[in-house]
C-alpha cells in the first residue's frame, strides 16, 4: 500500500521536475523561464520527498521525516533565488516580451553600504 503510494508520488514528482525543465528550455523570454524551475520543480521535489518518507515508513525502519528538512529549505530558498535573479535581470535590462517596470537604481543592498 505504502509502496504503491510511493510509486505514484515518485512519478508525480518526476513529471513536475520534467515540466519545470521543459519550461526553462522552451519558454520564450527570461521572465517566463523564471516560472518553470522556481515552482514546478519545487512541487516535484516535494512529491519526491513525500515518496521518500512513504517508502521509509513502508520498509519497516519506522517513521522518519527528516527529508522534510530538504523540503522546508527549498521552499524558503527558491523564492529568494528567483527574486534575486529577477531583480538582476531587471537591472541589466534583459529582453522581455512585455514592458518591464523601471528598475530601482538605488536598491536596498547598495543603500546599506
Amino acid at each position: 500500500m505504502l509502496e504503491a503510494l510511493a510509486s505514484v508520488l515518485i512519478l508525480f514528482g518526476a513529471f513536475f521536475v520534467l515540466v519545470g525543465s521543459l519550461g526553462l528550455a522552451r519558454l520564450p523570454d527570461f521572465f517566463t523561464r523564471l516560472h518553470g524551475p522556481t515552482k514546478a520543480t519545487t512541487l516535484g521535489l516535494a512529491a519526491v520527498c513525500a515518496a521518500f518518507i512513504a517508502f521509509a515508513a513502508g520498509s519497516g525502519n519506522g517513521l522518519s521525516v527528516r527529508e522534510l528538512l530538504i523540503l522546508v529549505f527549498l521552499f524558503i530558498t527558491a523564492p529568494v533565488s528567483a527574486f534575486v535573479l529577477g531583480r538582476a535581470a531587471l537591472r541589466r535590462g534583459t529582453p522581455s516580451m512585455t514592458p518591464p517596470p523601471a528598475p530601482l537604481e538605488d536598491a536596498d543592498d547598495d543603500r546599506h553600504r
Partner: peptide, 24 residues
C-alpha cells in the same frame, strides 16, 4: 515568497518607499 511559490506569478522587485511589489 508565497507569490513566487504559487505558480503563474514570480515577485521580481520590491519598491519599499512606494510600497509596490512588482510581480511577473
Amino acid at each position: 515568497s508565497i507569490i513566487t511559490l504559487t505558480p503563474g506569478t514570480v515577485s521580481v522587485q520590491l519598491d519599499p518607499d512606494a510600497g509596490v511589489l512588482h510581480v511577473h
